[in-house]
Structures are given as structure tokens and as C-alpha cells.
């Protein structure tokens, strides 16, 4: 029980699991959080392609 609680707490703290862009089905492999994306861009020698949204993404992924 304790293990399950710890696991659930860990899950809820993982931003990747709560990010609305997870609903996106374009096939684009969005990287987040930004710091991770920036680190990958440095390590892999790639450019960032950043899509900022300005009107409030909802939990249903509306954007």
C-alpha cells in the first residue's frame, strides 16, 4: 500500500504525465520540459523548433 502511494505521488509529480500536449496525435514528439529540450538540442546538435501558444491551453489539449 505504501509502495503504491509513493508510486502515485511520483506519477502525479511527473510533468510529462500531465502535459496536455500528450493528447496531440500529430505524431510530433514534443520534448518537455523546456530545460530537457534545451539539453537535448545541445547534446544532439539540433535546433529547437518552439511553438508558443498564447491563449491558454486547456486540459483537453485545446490549442
Amino acid at each position: 500500500m505504501l509502495m503504491a502511494t509513493i508510486a502515485l505521488l511520483s506519477l502525479s509529480q511527473d510533468p510529462a504525465l500531465e502535459h496536455p500536449v500528450h493528447l496531440d496525435r500529430t505524431g510530433i514528439e514534443w520534448a518537455f520540459p523546456f530545460k530537457t529540450a534545451q539539453k537535448r538540442a545541445r547534446e544532439e546538435g539540433r535546433l529547437l523548433a518552439i511553438k508558443p501558444v498564447a491563449f491558454g491551453t486547456t486540459v483537453t489539449g485545446c490549442w
Binding site: 502535459h19 523546456f34 529540450a37 534545451q38 539540433r46 535546433l47 511553438k51 491558454g56 490549442w63
Partner: peptide, 26 residues
């Protein structure tokens, strides 16, 4: 985007579930 870029999505609104303060500052 997947093969030759690192694609990033975030919302500029700090209230959004997709907000990212580091991305916004950048």
C-alpha cells in the same frame, strides 16, 4: 521536426497546464 529538430510546445500563460517558465523566459 522529429528527426532534425527538437520540437517544443508550451503555453505563454502561467495559468495553463502547459506553462513552462523556462521556455517563456527563453
Amino acid at each position: 521536426l522529429n528527426e532534425l529538430f527538437i520540437p517544443v510546445y508550451f503555453d505563454l500563460s502561467p495559468k495553463s497546464p502547459a506553462s513552462d517558465a523556462d521556455a517563456k523566459a527563453f
